Simulated scan of single mutants.
Amino acid sequence: MTASVLRVDATRPDRLHVTLDHPQTRNAISAAMVADLHEICLSLERDPRILLLSGAGGVFASGADIAELRERRRDDALAGINSGIFQRIAALPMPVIAVIDGWALGGGAELAYAADFRIASTSAKIGNPETSLGIAAAAGATWRLVELVGEPLAKEILLAGRVLTAEQALAVRLVTEVHPPEALSAAADDLADRIAAQDPLAVRITKSLIHAPRSAHPAIDNAAQAVLFESEQKFARMTAFLDRKKK
């Protein structure tokens, strides 16, 4: 796939590396970018792979495109332009890794919150300045960020404009790793390698269990395990484990 505001690297069969690349707006989340991300999601729903999301030019994403946002009205908000794509990304079958270098603000931060993993460079800064622009962080931050870091810190970020540095984000586990900018891409591939070493079906099912509502457990866990107990990978991997123990 070739997209005007995204660069796509599909050279490895188990992953797709998508780079937000619109330097004029510091990779702002525009309608064009949303459309391209929907195409990416369609591809990954049909052919599940790990998704790595990063930004070009030392910026993850500076936010939503303010020029576009200024012109949006009630019906645009109700259409959930950004919230819809972030929800679709969060629901992808295989894990999503947000690779945060530099600014991840507003919609850019909400895109990162929708990922399963967030790793950052030492220059990363994460925040939600929406209320300073007269709007709400309505594409996931008001609930995803609360789940990720807790209500008190989420309120500092959402209501008082606090911006987290990479080390602060690591301390509250909003990101799980921090690396120098020049080492960030390799670190992202290392994490993807660790995921890829697992059984893909077990990873997909486990991700779906994590995101299932509390009321669905434990019945959904038992049903999922029943499927995995019959899989070829379960027998092959457990046999290999037992064979290694014998040596």
Rank of each mutant, 00 (worst) to 15 (best):
M33G: 02
R46V: 07
V34A: 01
V5T: 10
A10G: 10
A35W: 05
A32D: 04
G57H: 13
I40L: 08
E39R: 06
C41M: 11
Q24I: 05
P48Q: 15
I40E: 00
D9S: 06
G55N: 14
A61T: 11
A61W: 05
A31Q: 14
T25I: 12
G55T: 15
A56G: 10
S4P: 06
E45K: 13
L20A: 07
T11E: 08
P13T: 14
G58Q: 04
P13I: 15
T11C: 10
A31F: 09
S43H: 14
S54K: 08
L44S: 09
D14G: 03
G58F: 04
L44C: 11
R46P: 04
H22T: 07
T19E: 11
G57Y: 09
V8P: 05
L52M: 11
I40P: 01
E39C: 12
L6P: 05
R49G: 05
G58R: 04
S30V: 04
S30F: 02
D47A: 04
I50D: 00
G55V: 15
L53N: 00
A31S: 13
P48H: 13
P48C: 13
R46S: 09
N27Q: 09
G57Q: 14
C41A: 10
A32R: 08
A35N: 15
S62C: 14
H22D: 08
S4Q: 06
H17R: 04
P13N: 10
L51W: 03
L52H: 00
D36L: 12
L16N: 02
H17N: 02
T25W: 00
G55E: 14
L20C: 06
Q24N: 09
T11H: 06
L51C: 05
L6Q: 07
V18Y: 00
R15F: 06
R26N: 11
L37T: 03
L52P: 00
H38Y: 11
T11A: 12
R46D: 05
A61F: 09
D36Q: 14
V18N: 04
R15E: 06
F60W: 08
I40H: 01
L20R: 03
V59M: 00
R15D: 04
P13F: 12
L42N: 12
E45C: 13
A61R: 13
G55A: 14
L16V: 12
D9L: 08
T25K: 02
R15P: 09
A56N: 10
R26V: 03
T19Y: 01
R46H: 11
S54N: 11
F60V: 13
T25A: 07
F60H: 08
V59L: 00
E45H: 10
G58W: 00
L53R: 05
R15V: 06
T19Q: 10
D21G: 01
G55Y: 09
L37Y: 01
T25S: 10
H38I: 14
A35R: 15
R26I: 02
A10P: 05
S62D: 12
D9H: 06
D47K: 03
D47N: 03
R49F: 04
T19P: 07
A56Y: 05
A31M: 13
L52G: 04
L44G: 07
L6V: 11
N27V: 03
R12C: 07
P23R: 09
